[in-house]
């Protein structure tokens, strides 16, 4: 049990955090679209992080349960996929 003021403060702070994640998502998408192979991989890897965190906080703020499952998949599989594809690029001599 908390007060309405505390709930409103948490909601506004969470929305501000999600807004900042939108700015970071735009920056990482720009990085992914303008760079080479490894730079694009870095941008996409960071974008999955940003999208996963935003979806997780959507679940925390608004209790949308399917957003949590998507967020966990994005965070874990995105991170592992970035590592695997970086190894593939290194071995294959891409870029």
């Amino acid at each position: 049990m908390t007060t309405p003021f505390v709930d409103l403060t948490f909601l506004v702070s969470g929305l501000a955090f999600i807004l900042s994640l939108c700015v970071a998502g735009a920056a990482t998408l720009r990085l992914a679209l303008r760079g080479g192979a490894v730079t694009s991989l870095m941008g996409i890897g960071c974008f999955t992080t940003v999208a996963g965190t935003g979806l997780y906080f959507l679940e925390v703020l608004f209790h949308i349960h399917f957003a949590r499952d998507t967020a966990i998949a994005l965070l874990l599989i995105g991170a592992i996929g970035t590592i695997v594809f970086a190894r593939i690029v290194r071995v294959g001599g891409g870029e």
Binding site: L75, T82, I83
Partner: peptide, 24 residues
């Protein structure tokens, strides 16, 4: 989930820097 992801972050940065160094 944050803790598991926090443990994976150094490996991501190292793998990306490694790939860039060896290819470029």
């Amino acid at each position: 989930v944050g803790l598991i992801f926090f443990a994976l972050i150094p490996f991501i940065g190292n793998a990306l820097a490694n790939a860039y160094y060896y290819t470029k």
